[in-house]
Nucleic acid binder design. Structure first.
Lengths: 183, 183
DNA sequence: TTTGCATTTAACCAAATGGTTAAACCAAAT
DNA sequence: ATTTGGTTTAACCATTTGGTTAAATGCAAA
């Protein structure tokens, strides 16, 4: 996930795993098949996070707040996940279209349709669902993607900036949601 | 920029440029030197965008709004810029630390110190400068990074979602800034 | 003890890839 | 007409890399 499909070397993967190249091929047959397993696993884990939106017993804002907690915890555990998925898709867009269909289960509701519904029922103000979804994901995911840069920028400043905690991060995203969706 | 240092092939670069491999090497000597020129150019262009913050004749919010317009226009022109820079840095963090020092000119003021100053002068409410900077960049840059995914998600929805325009995007980021920094 | 499977070792192969070179080509300036 | 410098062609090289193979080894269950 760190080096991507092109950058990763089978020998390095074997070394990191503490095995040898022969055994790596014994298990996965080829680099392509290994990549497929890693990529599919990542995609499916990522999509699983969206399932919160389907819980119709909760008000929209609450569902979104839970999603924020969940996805930020998730990305803390796998900081390279977003970058990996996006990078592979943007270098090879065809890859994605096939796989999304398989992964995405039909019973899960998309945030867009949830928002749309809530707007119709006047539960929340009229917001552009696509823009809102985009902003929300931006606030959650980008800090993990750009963290190597932020680290340098922050440590470059002579003053000691308190490393932004995940809790502060969550809080700021939730404030944004409240601002956008409160009546 | 699309395929990155590892993924790009000299032959493909030559083909895309409409020249042959020999001439490509004639100009750039090696893949590493070619990469350096591309990476340095990208980094310097990116940093140049930050110069708006230094214009002390304008109020902070105005400076930030101009930055938003500017960086979103900039990223529309070079959609792969963010991804490229971040990906290369995260695979090879050492690369960055050296180069930032050379690129960054000392007279440019960082947004963090601008915010810090404005807070002290009670021009804007007390916000965490690092969190704010992070959120701002997230909202601006992530949509371009994740656009391959968003395209699929949006086109997957049966309903035709109006492709979010750059103007709408800018508007939503500015609303966020107003929300955070208005007294 | 034997059987079977996971694992290692080490050598090997073919293809891809970065890089080089020498000769030829060509257009514009002299 | 000649020179010059950018450009092409095409062959070539060394290294890297994905992948294979065969034999040996270790090890746990039967």
């Amino acid at each position: 996930m760190k080096y991507g499909l092109y950058g990763a070397r089978m020998q390095d993967i074997a070394d990191t795993a503490g095995i040898n190249k022969a055994l790596l091929h014994y298990y996965f047959r080829s680099k392509e098949k290994l990549f497929d397993q890693v990529f599919d696993g990542a995609l499916s884990k990522y999509f699983k996070q969206m399932e919160v939106f389907s819980d119709k017993s909760l008000p929209v804002v609450e569902r979104i707040n839970r999603y924020i907690d969940q996805i930020i915890d998730f990305l803390s555990e796998y900081p390279q996940m977003s970058m990996f998925i996006i990078k592979e898709i943007s270098t090879n867009p065809e890859l994605f279209k096939e796989k999304v269909q398989k992964i995405k289960n039909p019973k899960s509701t998309s945030l867009i349709s949830v928002l749309q519904e809530s707007i119709e029922q006047k539960e929340i103000p009229e917001v552009d669902p696509v823009i809102f979804l985009m902003n929300l994901h931006s606030l959650c995911a980008y800090p993990f993607i750009a963290s190597p840069i932020f680290k340098v920028i922050i440590e470059k400043s002579k003053t000691t900036w308190s490393d932004p905690t995940h809790e502060k991060h969550k809080q700021s995203v939730k404030e944004f949601v409240a601002f956008k969706l409160s009546n």
